[in-house]
Simulated scan of single mutants.
Amino acid sequence: MKKFRRATLFCLALILALGLPLAASAVGKWTEGPVHWSQARRDSSGLAPKPEETPEAVVQVYAGRAWSWRGIFGVHTWFAVKPPNASEYTRLEVMGWQLRYGSTAVRVRNGTPDGYWFGSEPELLAEVRGAEAEILIPRILAAAESYPHADQYRIWPGPNSNTFTAHIARQVPELSLDLPPTAIGKDFIPEGAVFAKTPSGTGFQVSLLGLAGVVLALEEGIEVNVLGLTLGVDVTNPALKLPGVGRVGFSD
């Protein structure tokens, strides 16, 4: 009987730990009000340096809340790179809708590096400039080309846009990229692997198809993945990591 009660209390605690943050995220999303996707903002947020004023190489990684109800749960992430003296940025991301037309889900083309993601203001997750960025850009482009799930896309639990970003980050550990807990799909290890380095390259993770797993790393801290939702603690920059809400504590 005691074991049953303990198991019941544990399940209730887990449901509350997952459900309450998601409920708070849903309320925040609901208060934004309805906007048709075609009218949602996609213009620059002003976070990226202007090419005409910045001759040096630039690498940036962004996250923006997903469109519609998906934004309750997670974000869309992407890379933006600019070689030295380039007049435009190149965006690298996965767009699932492209598969409807027989194309690859991987999209690499010139575009607005820091645009609002269908109305959601983006967050800058990482940035490298100068000589180091110049060295990293060819490796980032090569990692995008080697992404093994270019012909697949699943919102949950992956592979999706965050699986793609995590794949590049693992190939370029110099970025030390700590993806937000709301980046659902980041824990889907490509090609069905169970064990891998974390996207930051500072630790290791075990994951069962992005549905359940554990992360231990200097950058990510301690994370537990339950059905694609992340609960965790960042020890280096003290913060809680909650599903739907994201980080609560010090800035990463």
Rank of each mutant, 00 (worst) to 15 (best):
M1G: 11
K2P: 13
R5V: 15
R6C: 11
T8E: 11
L12A: 13
L14K: 07
I15K: 06
L18S: 11
G19H: 05
L20R: 07
V27N: 08
V27G: 05
G28K: 05
W30H: 05
P34I: 10
P34N: 07
V35S: 09
H36G: 02
S38L: 14
S38I: 13
S38W: 12
R41I: 07
R41C: 00
R41K: 06
R42D: 08
D43Q: 15
S45R: 10
S45Q: 01
A48H: 09
K50T: 04
P51D: 02
E52P: 06
E56N: 03
V58H: 06
V59Y: 11
Q60T: 09
V61S: 02
V61P: 04
Y62R: 01
R65L: 05
A66S: 15
W67A: 13
S68Q: 14
R70Q: 15
V75D: 13
H76F: 07
K82D: 04
K82L: 00
N85T: 05
A86V: 03
E88K: 12
R91L: 15
E93R: 05
E93F: 03
V94P: 05
V94I: 12
M95K: 00
W97M: 06
Q98R: 15
L99I: 07
L99R: 06
L99D: 10
G102A: 15
G102S: 11
S103H: 04
R109V: 14
P113R: 01
G115C: 08
S120A: 14
L124H: 02
L125K: 04
A126L: 07
E127H: 03
V128I: 10
A131F: 12
A131S: 14
E132F: 12
A143W: 03
E145S: 15
Y147G: 08
Y147H: 04
P148M: 09
H149P: 13
Q152C: 14
Q152D: 14
P157T: 02
G158Q: 10
P159R: 01
S161M: 03
N162C: 00
T163W: 06
A169L: 08
A169D: 10
Q171V: 00
V172E: 04
E174A: 14
L177R: 07
D178Y: 00
D178P: 01
T182M: 13
A183F: 10
A183M: 08
G185A: 09
D187G: 07
P190Y: 06
E191Y: 04
G192C: 12
A196P: 03
P199L: 03
G203F: 04
G203T: 01
V206M: 09
L208G: 10
G210V: 08
G210Q: 07
G210E: 01
A212S: 10
G213H: 03
G213D: 09
V214W: 03
E219C: 03
E220N: 11
E220M: 00
G221K: 08
V226M: 09
V226H: 07
L229W: 06
L231C: 03
A239C: 13
L242Q: 09
L242V: 15
P243V: 07
V245P: 04
G246P: 08
R247M: 08
V248T: 13
G249Q: 07
F250I: 14
S251Q: 14
